[in-house]
Structures are given as C-alpha cells and as structure tokens.
Simulated assay, not measured.
Amino acid sequence: MTDQLSTPKGPQAMPPVVDDAAWRAALDDLRRREKAATRELDAIAAQRRRMPMVEVTNHTLTGADGPISLAEIFDGRSQLITYHHMWNDGAEFQCPGCTGYTSQFTRLEFLDNYDARFVIVTNGPIDEALAYRRRVGNRMEWFSAAGTTFGSGVDAAPGEGFAINVFLRDGDRVYRTWHTNGRGTEQLGHSFALLDVLPWGRQEEWQDSPDGWPQRPTYSGWADSTDIAHFYGEDS
C-alpha cells in the first residue's frame, strides 16, 4: 500500500464505552438519519428515472476485436453504463483512483437480468488499454475512444477527468440519460461504503472526526496502481 495505517494511541482514539441501553439509544438516533438519507436517495432515484435524455452520435469505438459502434457495445441490451478511465498514453501505470475504483467490479453478470451492461471506455489506444487491463487484473470489458470525440461529448475529454455515463438504446439510436463524476461515483461502488461504517472511517484529514482519531492526507491510504497489479494482475 502507499501508506501504512496510522496506529491509534491511547483512549482518545477510541469511542466512549457505554452500557447497552445507551448504545442502542445512540444507534436509534443515528438510524433516524440513516433512514432519512435512504428515503432521500430513493427520491433522487425517482427523479433520475424521470430525467429527459439526449441523443448522442453512434460513435465507432475500438474493442478487443476491432471497430465497434456504440450501439453494438450494448451487446443486445437496452441500457449501458460506461466508466471513462483516465489515461496517459504510453504510461506503464494509469490513474490509481480509476484503477482501484474499477477493480471493485468483478461480477457484473447480474446486470443481464436488468437488460444492462457496464464497461470501461478510455481515450487511450486499445492495445495499451488491453495490456493495462491484463497488467492490473481488471475484470471488466474495455473499449477505446481514441480518435473520436466520444470522450469530449460525455464530459471525459482526453487529459481531463473520469466520468460515469448511462445510455439507453433504441435500435441503432443511442441516448444519454445520466452522468456523474468526482464523488458522485462513490454510490456505485462498495469500497467507500465499507470504510464509512468503520469506527475510524476513511481516516482522511478532511473528514469530521473526533479529536485523536487517526487521520492522514487525503488519498494516501488508497491502493496505488502498482498495488492493484500486485494483488490481481497477470503476474500476481
């Protein structure tokens, strides 16, 4: 890992100890806020389902087997999620955040029952992208948008950031229905959700934590791309 977990020192780094009744009362109080957040997320999802959509060009991207249209990437399904992976041509290791984030998604077959698919798109050359996929042991299917304006059109132009986009297909016509980037991508993965239920949370310096909680610079606890390759890659 890129940084070692801070070792808590003394009782100041521990939650207060109470009896069971007090603990359950505190949990009930927190649960009210958790339930309110769940209901708000349900309401947001309902609004998302009522979003209009915009037609996009049926770009020709490149996959492992050569040129492929955006509509064909759906592989017969009606819905498609794409993660636009940040890319630097020729680099041995790419963005650690993108590499670590996409390493979460190892079992996506359940989407078949929902008429949907989730793939990675990058602005890099397909041969480099596929080699990197093997190097870091990524399990998703990769496509290249190199030489097209697809990345720019979905708010993930070359040299810019990552993005998640969702599309709906009607025959050969493709429509963009949703987009997010930055911390908006967190709700689609499990890594941060698991960290957030831990007593010390993510342990990053921006978080609101009690005095004495272990904290360190933001991102410093994340696995680097080399770590991902070591854990899951072709030479692991």
Rank of each mutant, 00 (worst) to 15 (best):
E72P: 05
E72W: 10
I73S: 05
F74D: 04
F74K: 05
F74Q: 06
F74P: 00
D75R: 12
D75E: 11
R77H: 13
S78H: 12
S78N: 11
Q79H: 15
Q79N: 11
Q79S: 10
Q79C: 06
L80N: 01
L80V: 05
L80Y: 03
L80Q: 05
L80W: 04
L80P: 02
L80E: 06
T82F: 13
T82A: 12
H84N: 14
M86R: 14
W87L: 02
W87D: 06
D89M: 09
G90R: 10
G90T: 03
G90W: 11
E92P: 01
F93N: 02
Q94M: 09
Q94K: 03
C95I: 10
P96V: 04
G97S: 14
C98L: 05
T99Y: 08
T99K: 10
G100Q: 07
G100E: 07
T102K: 01
T102Y: 08
T102S: 04
T102E: 02
S103R: 12
S103N: 07
R107D: 15
R107K: 15
L108W: 08
E109R: 15
E109K: 13
F110A: 13
F110S: 11
D112K: 13
N113K: 14
Y114K: 15
D115F: 12
D115S: 08
D115C: 05
A116H: 09
A116W: 06
R117H: 09
R117I: 05
F118T: 05
F118Q: 06
V119A: 07
V119Q: 02
I120L: 11
I120P: 00
I120F: 03
V121C: 03
V121F: 04
V121I: 15
T122F: 00
N123R: 09
G124F: 04
G124I: 05
P125D: 10
P125S: 08
D127N: 13
A129N: 01
A131P: 00
A131V: 01
A131T: 09
Y132L: 01
R134V: 04
V136G: 02
V136S: 04
V136P: 00
N138A: 14
N138W: 03
N138F: 02
R139E: 11
R139G: 03
M140Y: 05
M140S: 01
E141D: 15
E141I: 11
W142V: 01
W142L: 03
F143E: 03
T148W: 12
T149R: 15
G151N: 06
G153M: 12
G153H: 14
V154Q: 07
V154R: 07
V154N: 05
D155R: 15
D155T: 10
D155I: 07
A156R: 08
A157L: 11
P158R: 13
